[in-house]
Design a protein around this nucleic acid. Sequence first.
DNA 1: GATGTAATATCGCTCAATGCTATGAAAATA
DNA 2: TATTTTCATAGCATTGAGCGATATTACATC
Lengths: 316, 316
Amino acid sequence: MKIDSEHLEILAAIVEKGGLTEGAEALGKSQPSVSRSMALLEDRIGMPLFEPGRRPLRPTELGASLARLGGRIRSANQEASLLVRRFRQGLAGRLRVGGSPIFMDGVVASMVAEFQTRHADVQIDQSYGYLDSLETGLRNGGLDLAILPLHPSQVPQDMEFAPLLSGNNVIACRAGHPLTRARAITLADIAPYAWIAPPQNSPLYRDLLRALKSIGQEDFRVNFSGGMLASIQSVLAGSDALTVLPYSVVFMSRRTIPLEALPLKIDHPDRQLGLLTVADRQGPPAVAQFISFLRAECERLQARMDHDQQVTRRRG
Amino acid sequence: MKIDSEHLEILAAIVEKGGLTEGAEALGKSQPSVSRSMALLEDRIGMPLFEPGRRPLRPTELGASLARLGGRIRSANQEASLLVRRFRQGLAGRLRVGGSPIFMDGVVASMVAEFQTRHADVQIDQSYGYLDSLETGLRNGGLDLAILPLHPSQVPQDMEFAPLLSGNNVIACRAGHPLTRARAITLADIAPYAWIAPPQNSPLYRDLLRALKSIGQEDFRVNFSGGMLASIQSVLAGSDALTVLPYSVVFMSRRTIPLEALPLKIDHPDRQLGLLTVADRQGPPAVAQFISFLRAECERLQARMDHDQQVTRRRG
DNA sequence: GATGTAATATCGCTCAATGCTATGAAAATA
DNA sequence: TATTTTCATAGCATTGAGCGATATTACATC
């Protein structure tokens, strides 16, 4: 025999409030409605739930026991309502974000930290990849969101790209690197130093090649490769090696890792770091929350970077 | 916004069984029914519960979370069903029993112990009283059952009395008491010994007076009064005092307390120890269980007592 | 790919349950 | 006893659950 959970919840409210009328009020129902519900329940289980002929309706032993269970049901139900509300507001849920490694590690991760301090119940699953894998991830539903540098022409069919930051790269080195003391840097100045190479298949690696080509350096020596950002930062900080990084990454790293960008104009690709999403799919609300958060954060970051560059330029 | 608990239960079943069809089967409902229920729930909360376009229907993050809560509701509901079933069979519940002190302590308590080893979930609230207080207790619903010695003419209006044991009293003393060695006891033999008196307002006290009168002893000395059975037993066992007790109490006590009944015919009242209940009220099923249990136990006890008395008589 | 199979969604229908207001009955309180 | 409070019942409209029949869609297998 299956008992209607709704009935148990009503019973719990009545017992808790100490009377049918008050219970009905607490439930937002009319008194006759709950009265009839209880009569039906008593009929079904074939036993009295309330002591007969007592006016402030008092439960029998069985009624009290069932009310306890009804209370458990009620609390589970309330928790469910709460959960739904939080999900709707994007304050709970899971979020699968994929992106290019350097940018995710160097910029996005700290924003994730900030986001999670505000929305503690949003779980973020991060993964790494470049355009191809991210695109398929978005298409098959394995990703809600991709973050990567992209040229407008590269945006796949049926997808939307929202720029977050300018994608210009710089040549990075440790703070206090000999080259930072030079007023104007020539090809000959750079030649002696070894390079840290990003992953071979990364756009950043192609950027490195292009950048060096643009300043006339065709031949270069690589002394470290294959590392993710944390490794690159360590090698960079502990040696005189050079590498190519998005300016935003260098900028964000300054607090903890003493890096500098060489004041050297390099040919940077016409790309922007941004968000790639499937066009007509909004996914869980937490995605929208995260996106708007990211945009706001990046806007602030961009402003700080612009301001910083102006100051540097004026000084230089 | 209130979520239908039934929907959460259905969701839990679907997620647990890994598919809508199997979930429906487990719930004993048709597949279209649960499909529509889920569609309705999705409509209400305004968010998808299942990943779109997956054929062995897989829950979204939200769906899985709600399913967990649905599981809690389901288990509470099942527990409720179980509870009702146990109540109906009299295997659970609360039982308020009142009775005359000596008999409750000396006979009923050990039967309660036996009853509870079989029906662990029946809680028994025992109280003490005599006819008047027991009757009002039964009438106002404070008692489910009364156990006391009663003469048929004393049975109140609208109540039923079911005899359990013969109510004859005996003069009790410690085993090895000097009087037990006498072949025939005379009034002069008894005269020197002090008496333990039951409570002044108890029927047993009146029985004591009557018994002594019947054997011609008008004057007697009381050296202990006011004690409940455990005290009486201790005083009895540790001294040469005498008292009047129902034979059944002496009989039941023999195992632990070495008592004997004097082979002396006393005028015992025409009463029987039995159950008093309100006529047209069956109360909780546990009452019926307990009553039938008591009757069986007392029948066995009566048989043992009869047998024992025959043997004693033959020997004596 | 094409096709067959299994899983799910939709439709049309009936019936049970819930909702309300109005009102009656009974217990508690004065 | 009179009055108030509290619960039960009646009547009626609406919603949702239930079913079978059937359409649709994803997955599997060739």
